[in-house]
């Protein structure tokens, strides 16, 4: 069965549009996240900072459709991901959202190119081109030995494989969760360069969550995510 997504022209439709988003912890009911509006245009690179507990990672999970928000909408390339159910949402995420994690989360026991091809498995890209596509991406990111198993690669190389995997399906949006946190300053610099360059060359919007203020200026826009408590304090001070 072919599932068609109503993806609008990404040149005119924002890569990400968040409206009136609120999320509460299911167990306690206390607010975890509150965003009135956030929009990323195609190819735009936004860094999101915030204190610990401000809900940065929760936001990424909500955007990726891994959690459902308490209220509000999240549209990726014009598609409200939370209106999609089960299989359709999983397929949409695989095709439209790339994710880079702090600890890479590569599939151990598999080679670098197999990790990239694992992302392509769930796309509509013809199977015959998967290996070539994975190798090209890895070579462009400086991995000369794509057949090497990922656990034998250095941390910096593993991060490059993770970036290649996130961009394998030409996603409209790349979500990066503390992508430099496990790297030394030099490697962090290189990894961010690669991530930003790769997103730019594929016109993917990048939403990067970090607590590291050093890299804020490298992005098109900087957004600060205040925790619900900080927002309340701010509102009280304003009053």
């Amino acid at each position: 069965m072919t599932i068609r997504f109503d993806v609008q022209n990404t040149e005119t439709t924002p890569a990400l549009r968040i409206s009136s988003l609120a999320h509460r912890y299911a167990s306690s009911g206390t607010p975890a996240l509150q965003i009135d509006a956030l929009t990323l245009d195609p190819g735009e690179q936004v860094v999101l900072t915030g204190s610990s507990g401000s809900g940065k990672s929760t936001l990424l999970h909500l955007v990726a459709g891994l959690m459902d928000p308490s209220s509000g909408t999240i549209e990726i390339a014009g598609e409200d991901i939370h209106k999609l159910n089960g299989h359709a949402r999983d397929r949409f995420r695989g095709r439209s959202v790339g994710m880079v994690f702090q600890t890479h989360h590569l599939l151990t026991g598999f080679s670098a190119e197999e990790n990239v091809m694992a992302a392509l498995m769930f796309s509509d890209i013809p199977r015959g081109s998967h290996r070539e596509r994975a190798r090209t991406l890895l070579e462009s990111l400086g991995i000369p030995t794509p057949a090497q198993r990922v656990e034998r690669l250095s941390i910096g190389q593993q991060q490059r494989v993770a970036i290649a995997r996130a961009l394998a399906c030409d996603p409209a949006l790349v979500l990066a969760d503390e992508p430099t946190a496990s790297l030394d300053p030099d490697n962090a610099q290189v990894a961010l360069d690669l991530l930003q360059d790769a997103c730019r060359s594929s016109n993917a919007a990048l939403l990067c969550v970090t607590h590291d203020q050093r890299f804020v200026d490298r992005f098109d826009r900087h957004e600060h995510l205040a925790s619900p408590l900080e927002q309340l304090q701010g509102a009280l001070e304003g009053a």
């Binding site: 999983d90 695989g94 989360h105 992302a119």
Partner: peptide
């Protein structure tokens, strides 16, 4: 669990 979660992020459905 991590492998399964990664596959889910990459687009694998629960039935898969």
């Amino acid at each position: 669990r991590k492998q399964i979660a990664v596959l889910r992020v990459l687009g694998a459905s629960r039935p898969r």
